[in-house]
């Protein structure tokens, strides 16, 4: 397990290093509870609409269930629950972003999927020290966009925090 954990930190550090080095990075933007997040595009396997999910009894509350993606079983994660947010109130269709983590596929259930943005280093900032502790854990930093702020989602840490 330690090696896997190391690999994650490694992944995160690499990304941070790349962001810091100033090379442009592409992020898929998503929206959860009116907040914009970015996921490094290379981590994204797929974007899905609402799916039929099989519930998994006794699983941690963040786990929404399991679904079949072209013959592979994908574990669906309710990101709202993970971020300590209330369930969604509007009745728009949920979206999912599929990511791979330690050779397993996870589908992150979120509100909306936006564009892919190419972001420059000069707009990057570390997490504000006053940020909510759960959010600070899953955020790799903030990009200042013109109209709003974009939180970079640390997918490995987001998934690691899900415990039975």
């Amino acid at each position: 397990m330690t090696t896997a954990a190391n690999a994650n930190t490694q992944e995160t550090q690499d990304l941070e290093a790349e962001i810091a080095s100033g090379s442009a990075k592409d992020f898929l933007t998503i929206t959860i509870a009116d907040q914009m997040f970015g996921i490094p595009v290379l981590q994204v396997q797929d974007v899905l609409g609402s799916q039929k999910v099989t519930k998994i009894p006794l699983a941690p509350r963040e786990v929404a269930g399991a679904l079949n993606l072209r013959g592979r079983i994908v574990t669906a994660i309710n990101v709202r629950e993970r971020l300590g947010l209330d369930p969604r109130l509007d009745d728009e269709e949920d979206m999912s972003v599929v990511v791979e983590h330690e050779n397993e596929l996870y589908s992150l259930i979120i509100d909306k999927v936006g564009d892919v943005l190419s972001l420059k280093n000069e707009n990057y900032e570390n997490n504000p020290a006053t940020l909510d502790s759960v959010w600070r854990e899953i955020s790799m930093g903030i990009f200042r966009l013109e109209s709003q702020l974009l939180v970079i989602l640390d997918v490995p840490k987001l998934l690691k925090g899900v415990h039975a």
């Binding site: 998994i56 006794l58 699983a59 786990v63 079983i73 574990t75 397993e104 996870y106 415990h163 039975a164």
Partner: peptide, 9 residues
Amino acid sequence: PNILRDLDI
């Protein structure tokens, strides 16, 4: 998946 390993049921 790993995050469900603890569920021995």
